[in-house]
Design a protein around this nucleic acid. Structure first.
Length: 861
RNA sequence: GCCGAUGUGGCGAAAUGGCAGACGCAACGGACUUAAAAUCCGUUUCCGGUAACCCGGAGUGCGGGUUCGAGUCCCGCCAUCGGCACCA
């Protein structure tokens, strides 16, 4: 860097104060039971989404949310709260393993290096984390409890009667393994040959892996699943009491995808016993069901298919099975299918209808089978047209007279209407509006045992195993083809030391290469899958409450204090990116509810208030990326302008939640602001040294300045509460501009300014506070120990106000009147205004609106 | 297609239904300086008029509406971004 003079000596101040904070443990939050703990204070838990420590270090997006939470944390401490503000590392995961495969270096080593780098970068920004609570998901002291929680899930089931997770011992059925919240299933998974692993649905984007962009195909495999679907209703309902953005709630609702309807059973012609069960949201269109469709993978297909159709069906199933999801959904513009040759009976009208298979029906939703109502469903309509299947209208815009009989099925073309209306051609419900028709037909089905009301969810059970090395091993062994849990005493179960992390390529996990390790005992082998990266982040906020406890995952007293409170959620403020809007937040809520049901936690929800920071774009307005060359590195910004300017700029850019482009000029502007604050109190002497300015004195501020000062106290406090940091900084700029003009610098006003600014720019304000203390000595200690100032409402009250006078809504004049001037008086003055008289000349005044202290509007024509 | 968010100067933005553009950037002019940087002061939505103090008009994506008064509320569009997407 050139030897351009720095606007103020941040390069000396910032390291100094960071060392002081570290030395004094200034931001350590003692736990209940600790001697330093003050039980008289209310708690405030402020959490950041902890980062994955990548090799490239921090980018300017990370500190955006972190600065916001740091400001709130520092502010809340000054307001008298016990503040829990921790940081840690989500360090298991694919990038470290991929790097290990390439470099041969053990992921633990790269992970350690990356963490060290991230940590030093975060410290340079001056965040007030309680570093004594630092956690790392790859520490055995941590993942021991991740494994322990898995065991709690494994040992539990969801009791439909109580709608709660309960220990498996309360299950009275015969096969406990069928109801466990953690279970094994042979499921079609997203197999990525390149990565040598399966991926969760959400890690597959348009048929390719999210990491690396490799092709992904479907393939059945034995996998661990978590029964999150059992909690669908509660995950949906309990969003209600949370202070989350509506858009995030909407995303979660959408993802859970509740839909209400009915399950209907269609008997199969020529077969006794069970028929085909389907789910429909439109039971009122049952008379319009003119054929049925099964998913190609539906196990019923084999039994149903007739001799003549067997070849066609088999070749269709092979064709579909070889397709990737991409080919099957994104690229499939045309619907395809074949007839099974079998028929079912429509239970309402006893009609024989053909049974087809088609890949537009998904095995994974509902029952993997549908009743097709081509007249009122676009997909069925398209299919029926293509294969010349009958179409029968059963919903119309207006009720029609009962005609006693059904209109014959039409052949295509006919229009398809998907909205609600009135039932027609449906003897049991003719003339009824759709909602009533649904109710009536469902009751009719229920009475005859042909169907029942039913709710379905889009949410699927959570595919919880990965074929990877760098993750938590499952505390499970296999004996005689059956899984059993390890005893808790054997935790943590560490991954075996391996030099070769490469995927086996067969789908068998890398852990299978550790021949000694997998051999558990005579006849028992260890599970070789590992948990997904989500596992560690599902409960880290709990561990922060009591990070070193080696008796349990979180101590009861610590949990009750930090995660307690009157609201349903424990963490008071949680800030992070929208990319976790669905998965992380849903998974964490799910684990939380299981642990809550089992009696380990005091609140049903983890995060009370959630805020998403917006993405920071490059200076060119594009997403930051190496290839575009528009990445801004925080280290460079701090070298040049200091951490305080970096922090303030990130907050001054615009509303926290909004996407916004970076601007180096903007950083300079904020840096100038901090330098002005510095020069309010400091001046250079002959030797070029910064010394306390002689203008600083025990003196009352001028009245106008006091007014601004109190307005600033009010606004900054309110704006921090609402996370409107940009306007808080604007207001402080106004205050500084106002103080700069004054010849005498009022000590009291300056001190207040420093306290207000401290959460935003902790280093420079700490330094200036100390300098003032050395000269004037209030004896109240460090700036961080100050209490947040309160404002005097009296100071904000004006004696006189400017009232705007409008004629027909346009400003024509302004008058200054006493604060408490009566409306009639103001009106009188307004009408006497020369400009008003001019504006209403030749017109009749129809009405005069007087808004006290604001304006007068004269309506004339 | 469905769900959600956003749209205001050259730029980032601000405005309990009540003076649109606070605050900052950039630009321009001035002071200080031998000079530059830094700093300080001033101007800056657009169009038109005036020698000038200033005066007039238009203006918050587009079109309607409610209201004495709309960036803000209501209805209908358009554009951009994000999520979901054969979910029966």
């Amino acid at each position: 860097m050139s030897e351009r003079r720095k606007p103020y000596p941040f390069h000396e101040i910032e390291p100094k104060w960071q060392q002081v904070w570290e030395r004094d443990g200034s931001f350590h939050a003692p736990n209940p039971g600790n001697s330093a703990f003050d039980p008289g204070k209310p708690k405030f838990y402020i959490l950041d989404m902890f980062p994955y420590p990548s090799g490239t270090g921090l980018h300017v997006g990370h500190p955006e949310g972190y600065t916001a939470t740091d400001i709130v944390a520092r502010y809340k401490r000054m307001c008298g709260f016990n503040v829990l503000h921790p940081m840690g590392w989500d360090a298991f995961g694919l990038p470290a393993e991929q790097y290990a495969i390439k470099s041969g270096q053990h992921p633990a080593i790269t992970t350690g290096e990356n963490i060290a780098k991230f940590k030093s970068q975060l410290k340079r920004i001056g965040f007030s984390y309680d570093w004594s609570r630092e956690i790392n998901t790859t520490d055995k002291g941590y993942f021991r409890w991740t494994q322990w929680i898995f065991l709690q899930i494994y040992h539990s089931w969801f009791n439909p009667e109580t709608q709660r997770a309960e220990p498996i011992s309360t299950y009275r059925g015969t096969d406990a393994d069928n109801v466990r919240l953690a279970y094994v299933a042979e499921v079609p998974v997203n197999w990525c040959a390149e990565l040598g692993t399966v991926l969760a649905n959400e890690e597959v984007i348009e048929g390719r892996s999210e990491v690396g962009g490799f092709p992904v195909v479907r393939r059945p495999m034995r996998q661990w699943m978590l029964r999150i679907t059992a909690f669908a209703e509660r995950l949906l309902d309990e969003l209600e009491g949370l202070d989350w953005p509506d858009s995030i709630k909407a995303l979660q609702r959408n993802w859970i995808g509740r839909s209400q309807g009915a399950e209907v059973e269609f008997p199969i012609v020529g077969t006794a016993g069970t028929g085909i069960r389907v789910f429909t949201t439109r039971p009122d269109t049952l008379y319009g069901a003119t054929y049925m469709v099964l998913a190609p993978e539906n196990p019923l297909v084999d039994a149903l298919t007739t001799g003549e159709q067997r070849d066609a069906v088999n070749s269709y199933r092979v064709e579909i099975g070889s397709k990737s999801d991409l080919e099957r959904t994104e690229l499939a513009k045309d619907k395809t299918g074949v007839s099974t040759g079998a028929f079912a009976i429509n239970p309402v009208n006893e009609q024989r209808i053909p049974i087809w298979i088609a890949d537009y029906v998904l095995m994974s939703y509902g029952t993997g089978a549908i009743m097709a109502v081509p007249a009122h469903d676009e997909r069925d309509f398209e299919f029926a047209q293509k294969y010349a299947l009958p179409i029968r209208e059963v919903v119309a815009d207006a009720p029609r007279a009962r005609n006693g009989g059904e209109a014959p099925c039409s052949l295509p073309p006919l229009v398809c209407t998907t909205g609600e209306g009135f039932a027609v051609n449906s003897p049991l419900i003719d003339g009824l509006p759709s909602p009533a028709a649904k109710r009536q037909i469902t009751e009719w089905l229920e009475e005859r045992g042909l169907g029942r009301r039913m709710i379905n969810y889009k949410l699927r059970d959570w595919l919880f195993s990965r074929q990877r090395y760098w993750g938590e091993p499952f505390p499970i062994v296999w004996r005689d083809g059956k899984h059993e849990a390890l005893p808790e005493s054997e935790l943590p179960l560490e991954p075996p030391p391996l030099d070769d992390f490469k995927p086996t390529g067969t789908g068998e996990p890398p852990l299978a290469k550790a021949k000694d390790w997998i051999h558990y005992s005579e006849g028992a082998m260890r599970e070789t899958n590992t948990m997904p990266q989500w596992a560690g982040s599902c409960w880290y906020y709990l561990r922060f409450c009591d990070p070193t406890n080696n008796q349990c995952f979180v101590g009861e007293e610590a949990e009750r204090y930090w995660m307690g409170g009157p609201r349903p959620g424990g963490v008071d403020l949680y800030v992070g990116g929208t990319e976790h809007a669905v998965l992380h937040l849903l998974y964490a809520r799910f684990w939380h509810k299981v642990l809550f049901d089992l009696g380990y936690l005091s609140k049903p929800e983890p995060f009370q208030r959630l805020v998403n920071q917006g993405i920071i774009l490059g200076e060119d307005g594009q997403k930051m990326s190496k290839s575009r060359g528009n990445v801004v590195n925080p280290d460079d910004v701090i070298d040049e302008h200091g951490a305080d300017a970096f922090r303030c700029y990130e907050m001054f850019m615009g509303p926290l939640e909004q996407m916004k482009p970076w601007s180096m000029n903007g950083v300079e502007g904020v840096s100038r602001f901090l330098a002005r604050v510095w020069r309010l109190m400091m001046e250079e002497n002959q030797a070029g040294k910064w010394v306390l300015s002689a203008a600083v004195a025990h003196a009352p501020a001028e009245k106008a300045q006091l007014k601004v000062l109190h307005a600033t106290i009010k606004k900054v406090g309110e704006d921090i509460e609402t996370l409107s940091f940009n306007t808080a900084i604007s207001q402080m700029m106004i205050l500084v501009n106002s103080l700069t003009i004054a010849p005498v610098r009022s000590l009291a006003a300056l001190r207040t300014l420093l306290v207000l600014l401290n959460p935003f720019a902790p280093h420079v304000t700490s330094e200036l506070w100390e300098t003032l203390e050395q000269k004037f000595g209030s004896g109240t200690g460090d700036i961080a120990a100050q209490t947040w100032p309160s404002y005097d409402e009296q100071m904000l009250i004006e004696d006189e106000v400017t009232v705007v006078i409008q004629v027909n809504g346009k400003v024509r004049d302004k008058i200054i009147v006493p604060m408490d001037a009566p409306a009639q008086e103001v009106e009188k003055v307004a009408l006497e205004s020369a400009k008003v008289k001019e504006a209403i000349a030749g017109k009749t005044v129809r009405k005069v609106v007087v808004v006290p202290k604001k304006l007068v509007n004269v309506v004339a024509n």
